[in-house]
Design a protein around this nucleic acid. Structure first.
Lengths: 307, 307
DNA sequence: CACACTTACGATATTCGTAAGGATT
DNA sequence: AATCCTTACGAATATCGTAAGTGTG
């Protein structure tokens, strides 16, 4: 009891043409092959579908019953095939990713704009979350892939380094640190410091880089925007990655790339090992790989604007 | 791009079993043939549907998208096949027929009751109409077949005699005609007569039978029930076919089969020549053929009740 | 007898099963 | 090493096209 979409097409064509010869031609079949197919469809359904004489081909009552079903089934099958054609051609689809907040705000706009221009009908689901959350969303298959700092436990994940995110000193534009030729860790540790929570990737990088000279944490807050506001009124200084730098390009703030304690964090694409992505997700993933290390240019641009 | 219902079944089974080996067994296929089918389905859709290692078989994002479609398509296809199985098994279907009013009231109840007992889920459409209408409904294909007196022009119709419908004299129970040993045409023509319209088959039979001794038409009306009412109060006599006789079995009426001018009309099954009926309609048609000439027994029964 | 569908039959293409190969745990 | 999926290949099956057959107008 195996009905194929071609069977339906053959049936519907004969209904339209009311002639085996013409219908066969339209289906690109010999008239005999066409006849056999109709006959075997009738056998499969256990009902004669057409009454045919040499002059007339007309639906039987059973054929009349079958026609609307055949139409519906054929349309549904065609629709599904079309959906997958479109997905394969990246004309349709959905990409879901989980990325660090700084990546979401600092890099994704550029990446998405570029991708959307080429693939206007692909939907996105963008989750901005801390590194652990990104990793577990990827691991669970809740998202197609993630963009975050690397993870230690990579047995079931593929990691791919795509950027080095350099860190910048941010303080009030009149701050004495900006006038120094060379800023050391000790110099920075001398001033009140504005921190993100320990769960953030930025904080961990800083904790690691400044483990010898302890930073003077003045305030710990969840959002970069809060820190920017505090820095504007001179309540403290901070160090932020280039991906967050656009939030600190303000008239009252000064920005300076760190050189002596040069700090950066690796940004990785992570995905489940051995798992196939949808064509759309794969395309976006590859687009990011192709844009690999475009962050240094971002860095230069910000540095120029800022100093 | 030819997807078969088996392809869908193979896919859905693998989704359930998450194992090529087990799914292949359930589908009655070798594991290799099963693997090839999945692979060719993937190729047809242009998307990998499963990620498989030796330990795990899991849906890809494309596979997840395909699954609900596959479910729906497979269910729809199965439903249609089931519908036709049921139709072939006469478990489902619809029979539409057009019959003379007298047949509808006098014979159909018995025929339908018998058929419905065996085929409780088959629906009926019963049109009671005059002979010409019955024939044209059949000719147009608006009904499956008809039961009516014969038609002259039968080039595109198959006729089949299934009954001879004998005619009865009906008058008030005290009427003098009922006391006669032998009733002649002239005897009948002596009394006021209750007629149906000229379009009715009954009227035509009477007009033909009494063309020598003209009937004294007292009243012409459309319904047998009206004629019965008139006869009950002695306003006239009438002659009706056995199929209408049940309307005249009343305490105040006498009924007598006609012998000297013996009158009957042929009742035919008519259907389009060379046209296939649905299984249900064919079954009902054959049931009537099998009941062929059961009317004479009806005649005897009525005669017994009446005289 | 001309036209249109069906049937017959050899050729082609597809699908199948067995068996060997490859990869993962 | 055991298990499971894939690939290779000859066999079985299904489908196709050519051509002859059949029936209808």
């Amino acid at each position: 009891m195996n009905i194929t979409s071609n069977d339906l097409l053959v049936f519907l064509t004969l209904v339209q043409e009311k002639s085996f010869t013409r219908a066969a031609a339209r289906c690109g079949l010999s008239q005999s092959a066409f006849s056999t197919r109709i006959s075997s469809l009738e056998h499969a359904l256990g009902a004669k579908l057409f009454d045919r004489t040499t002059r007339r081909v007309e639906l039987t009552p059973d054929g009349e019953v079958f026609e609307p079903f055949a139409h519906q089934l054929h349309a549904d099958l065609s629709d599904v095939v079309q959906i997958f054609r479109d997905r394969a051609a990246r004309k349709r689809g959905r990409v879901s990713i989980a990325v660090l907040p700084s990546v979401a705000a600092g890099w994704m706009p550029k990446l998405l704009a570029r991708f959307a221009a080429r693939h206007p009908n692909i939907q996105f689901s963008l989750t901005d979350a801390i590194a652990e959350t990104c990793v577990s969303l990827v691991r669970n298959g809740d998202v197609d892939f993630g963009i975050t700092v690397g993870d230690n436990d990579t047995e079931d994940l593929d990691q791919r380094l795509v950027a080095l995110d350099h860190f910048y000193l941010v303080c009030h534009k009149d701050h004495e640190l900006l006038r120094k030729k060379k800023v050391t860790a000790a110099d920075i540790a001398a001033f009140p410091f504005l921190q993100l929570p320990r769960s953030s990737s930025v904080r961990r990088v800083l904790d690691n880089a400044f483990q010898s000279v302890k930073l003077k944490t003045y305030l710990e807050t969840n959002y970069m925007a809060t820190i920017a506001g505090m820095a504007e009124v001179g309540l403290g200084i901070t160090i932020v990655p280039s991906l967050s730098l656009n939030q600190f390009i303000r008239p009252t703030l000064g920005v300076r790339i760190l050189r002596s304690p040069q700090i950066s964090r690796p940004i990785h694409l992570i995905r489940r090992r051995g798992r196939t992505l949808s064509a759309a997700a794969e395309e976006f993933f590859n687009g990011i790989v192709a844009a690999k290390f475009e962050l240094p240019s971002l860095v230069r641009q910000h540095a120029k604007d800022a100093i």
